[in-house]
Amino acid sequence: MATAPETSARVQQAVDSSDKRILLRVEGLKTHFFTDEGVVQAVDGVDFEVKRGETLSIVGESGSGKSVTSLSILRLISRPGRVVEGRMIFDGEDLLAKSEEDMRKIRGDRISMIFQQPTTALNPVFRVGAQITETLNIHQGLTGEEAERRCIELLTMVGLPDPASRMNQYPHELSGGQCQRVMIAMALACTPELLIADEPTTALDVTIQAQILDLMREMREKIDTAIILITHDMGVVAEMADNVIVMYAGQVVEYASVRAIFAEPKHPYTVGLLNSMPVLGEVREELAVIPGTVPSLINPPTGCRFASRCSHRFEKCDEAPPMVALEHGRKVRCWLFE
């Protein structure tokens, strides 16, 4: 194990809210799903910012609202779901106020997304190359040979072997890692300002994951793309993120720089999450456990949503805790820090 210089440079840029380079500011985002069983408050009052060139990681378990948050930013929530409240200021303009027509221009051009299942995110009946040239055609007006040349360039950039013949293949002829490379090539086709990556390596084997993470890092350095990286894998967070948001039951419970969150997690849920994870090279007899399960989001507890599983619980926790601001721009939603 060695401390890479790149890592220490990354760690030094701690949370700094005075930065003028804010690309996206999400304020009071609420996305609810109106189902027969009741209103599922999947995202319930989420605030955060992403600066240009920053990698912000959103961490949480199933049902924490991390994927719904990202789909809300792209306005890809469909019925019975709806963004019911909030603002999403992207480069000075509220995405919620945009027409569907304008959104279509932004998606894929200024904001791109890569998904967890690369094999299902690609259209199975079109050749890989056609899917990339389509993006180039819509957003950059490239056609024919010009588009093809750019397509080969992109596929070369993401390290797909033999790109000229690969682009004539169908998604099923490629492996999972190769499909994810194609997805990244598509996402990068228009040098987006923001890349939303939802569990981009979860479906891949570790040796392939290493290749894809390296690729994303390289892209970030080359084109200064901001990345929202959604994942449940704390190892991926440690390796990629500048700052981290921890989500629990539809709310942000903690925000800090990557170094701070690992060195000194504050929220009892973050602490529990880090302790319950087996770490390679650190063998413990017993893993720490967070008892119980995530509460239902149809009728979430009125107080702290984590209280029923928390070992620090006290009377105050029956009331909903505010987001408490700590030093260095850190924030935590917990009464212990009031």
Partner: peptide, 9 residues
């Protein structure tokens, strides 16, 4: 395997 420590690689 990504190292779960942001200060080392």
């Amino acid at each position: 395997i990504p190292s779960a420590d942001p200060t080392t690689r």
